[in-house]
């Protein structure tokens, strides 16, 4: 009998693997948990995109629930979500932009802040401006601190300045209804 068990071992192993493979079929291999959720926003000291003399720190998130939206004019999906974000902001959701540009080498970039401002104004004028203000992530350091891998990505931040959700990809009515919206409502009533 003991001998038979040994010969059943490969079958048992296979069944176990097959179960995991089956489960794996129904989950997105690229979905990942952010390691910053439930942690306070990392420290920063960055200028406003439109008025570089104005500087922001995490203090600007204290006291109200906000969405921090990472975006850029070069990003196609960002343009798709802009109208819906504008709708949300018209309904009273506070949305702060974290803007970064695509010049691959910020140290030797060709774009000046002036050209970036023009491009941003043109884009927002065309698709709607959901942003209370835009923080300019000059060297893309801050998006790196946030664990951003691309644009668009959106963070939900509570009244204490703690990150409560990290969403990768665009915000659309479905995402808002199923994922971000309910948490947002809860945080508002906290």
């Amino acid at each position: 009998m003991k001998k038979v068990l040994i010969f059943l071992l490969p079958l048992g192993f296979f069944v176990l693997v097959a179960l995991f493979l089956f489960q794996g079929l129904f989950s997105d291999p690229r979905a990942r948990d952010s390691s910053l959720v439930n942690k306070p926003l990392p420290d920063f000291n960055l200028p406003d995109l439109m008025q570089p003399q104005v500087e922001y720190t995490p203090e600007v998130f204290k006291g109200q629930v906000s969405l921090l939206n990472v975006w850029g004019v070069w990003c196609i999906t960002c343009a798709i979500e802009l109208p819906y974000l504008t709708e949300l902001s018209d309904n009273g959701v506070r949305i702060v932009g974290l803007y970064y540009d695509q010049d691959t080498d910020p140290d030797f970039g060709t774009k000046t802040v002036g050209t970036i401002q023009q491009e941003v104004n043109a884009k927002l004028g065309q698709l709607g401006n959901p942003y209370a203000f835009n923080i300019f992530d000059t060297y893309r350091d801050y998006s790196l601190d946030l664990g951003v891998t691309g644009a668009p990505e959106t963070f939900l931040i509570d009244k204490k300045g703690v990150i409560r959700m990290h969403h990768i990809g665009d915000v659309n009515p479905r995402v808002w209804k199923n994922k971000i919206g309910p948490v947002y409502q809860r945080l508002m009533s906290e």
Binding site: R32, S34, S35, L36, L144, D145, T149
Partner: peptide
């Protein structure tokens, strides 16, 4: 890196 992007 891990504190920002996880073990991944």
């Amino acid at each position: 890196m891990k504190s920002r992007y996880g073990d991944f």
